[in-house]
Nucleic acid binder design. Structure first.
Lengths: 331, 331
DNA sequence: CTGAAAGCGCTAACAG
DNA sequence: CTGTTAGCGCTTTCAG
């Protein structure tokens, strides 16, 4: 900028204003400045600009696992919304580790990101994380995981409804002994479990404790949990898996045991990961609009970032949608 | 910082040095400063620090598609290497669009990222992108896609070897009419095709043009390309798909046609996406160590960022590894 | 061991 | 319409 100013014999301020098409600069000077800037291949220094403007156009996205198709989709949705507005995304993999997450959040805050989207790994109770953010007055939106008893912006799915929908569907397909492979000890997992129980109760069906296995989140976990279920005296004839990877692992176990899906055991998952259709048996699932969750969270965040006063926290719950494929189709 | 200094009756400089455990500060003052900093919940402002230090601890990662399991793995590898060193990652989805990519790169440069890792969407010929980076003197490492005729840091896989390995394997399994579903017009795709041809030639087998279909990169593309192959008078009995999604789509088409995999048609892909084992028929593949590619690229980048003089460009080619699963096991 | 001065590259506020 | 002054929050340099 200094160079441009010197070359043109104008002041630094004139250049600064011209470059940002500020109103009070004559058309002609502006053109000259822009011209020279192009010649010198000048690009404004965003670090300096951020410092004085107190705005970095950086948004932090903290998720537990990039490789999980759900979060990759969320990230894509977030980007789709934010990039056209000039923001860039700093991504952090917390690896399901609360300590890592905490450190990353502090770093992001120290970097003065304009906002944060967080799928917290420490969702189970620990609220310290959120305190930090509030103290620093960084606008933030939680996704997917909502620590109990906090009020904050949140975008997620209706877990109880997911569990109910999946279980109802299995009942509908004629399953009489329905099992569940549950997720890790998180609110999501509890919600889906609750939905599962509720649906069974509504139909006057039993839900023996031994039919609920797991506490897992990936295909390896689903595989071994399913093996436990298969070892029961009277194994289930329908299983609702916490998520699609778990359900996929379950299918693998069933087939390995020489049984058929869905004829002997019907299986349904949740999440509609993009490769569900390509699995051993195309997997029925409850879709939770992952990309849309990302977009909605980003939209909410933009509102917060643009508002002078922090607006009232909002909750957006995306309704689930049943996707029936071969793994549960019995009639 | 000003507050801490005032509270303690020392100068701003003393605080600054104490906080960074600079050597020439008495143990005692340091402790007092640290103490007060904790009380006030002080966090250094990285924007200001970046401005004066000319170092942001930000690394840009530009990839064509986060949802593609390969790039998600690469990103994970990059993070695993860089985060412990205090860097954070700004991620950019170019969506396979050269213009978007160009704009994002310029933004990242303007942000003064310390380095860049780039899987370029404009790999086919256009070198303008790289010129930009060199002009700005941002250290960068290319991954996965190498524009022809440039010398730059590069980490990727040996595509020709991948093609050869896959094809040899099919030959080995007794396939006599081997087809290929090729990828889009990129160096990678050409390399794999070349490897395919080379392997056939080495065994004195024909590679009729009609056996090479596609120009696709995802499962939908693989599906329709396979249907073309199946419509031939004398369809192949073994198919090498450009990547795993393509191969998975091909399997779907074969099964739908009432044929068996691998008995009627053996299929192999490349990339070893993490769900390969869960597909309709567990998919044989050529592993290209995606996460390792990310780590290696990050390592190379760190070298460049830390060097005073830009070091000689290096090329790292990760050797492929055959992973045999059911989709190609015929004996 | 401590601090005063200068400046990173830029912009907001106001004066000409 | 243009320019001057001050300062964003921090660090480097060098003098006490």
């Amino acid at each position: 900028m200094k160079d441009i100013a010197a070359d043109l014999g104008v002041s630094l301020m004139t250049v600064s204003k011209a470059l940002r098409s500020h109103s009070d600069i004559s058309e002609e000077t502006r053109k000259r400045v822009l011209q020279r800037a192009r010649e010198l291949n000048y690009q404004p220094n965003w670090v300096a600009r951020s410092l004085v403007m107190r705005k970095t156009y950086l948004v932090g996205l903290v998720i537990p696992d990039l490789m999980h198709s759900f979060f990759a989709e969320v990230a894509t949705g977030v980007a789709r919304k934010l990039v056209p507005l000039g923001y860039q995304i700093v991504i952090s993999n917390s690896d399901e580790d609360a300590a890592v997450e905490q450190r990353q959040l502090e770093l992001l805050a120290a970097r003065n990101v304009d906002g944060l989207i967080l799928a917290s790994a420490s969702a189970n109770g620990r609220k310290a994380v959120l305190e930090t953010l509030r103290m620093r007055e960084v606008p933030f939106v939680l996704i997917d995981r909502m620590p109990p008893g906090v009020t904050a912006n949140y975008v997620g799915s209706r877990d109880e409804e997911i569990g109910q929908m999946a279980t109802e569907h299995l009942i509908d397909q004629g399953c009489r002994r329905i099992g569940h492979i549950r997720g890790p000890a998180t609110p999501n997992s509890h919600g889906r479990l609750r939905g599962y129980r509720k649906a069974l109760a509504a139909h006057g069906m039993a839900s023996p404790d031994e039919y609920v296995a797991g506490g897992v989140r990936d295909d390896a976990g689903g595989y071994s949990a399913m093996r436990e279920l298969l070892a029961l005296e009277n194994p289930p004839d329908g299983v609702f898996g916490y998520n699609d990877p778990v359900a996929a692992g379950a299918i693998k176990a069933v087939l390995e045991a020489g049984l058929r899906v869905p004829q002997d055991i019907a299986i349904i998952g949740a999440g509609n990961v993009h490769y569900s259709d390509l699995l051993r048996v195309p997997l029925s699932t409850v879709d939770q609009s992952s990309a849309y969750i990302g977009e909605a969270a980003a939209g909410l965040l933009v509102e917060c970032m643009e508002a002078k006063q922090p607006p009232e926290p909002k909750r957006i719950l995306v309704p689930p949608r049943l996707v029936v494929r071969e793994s549960s189709r019995r009639r």
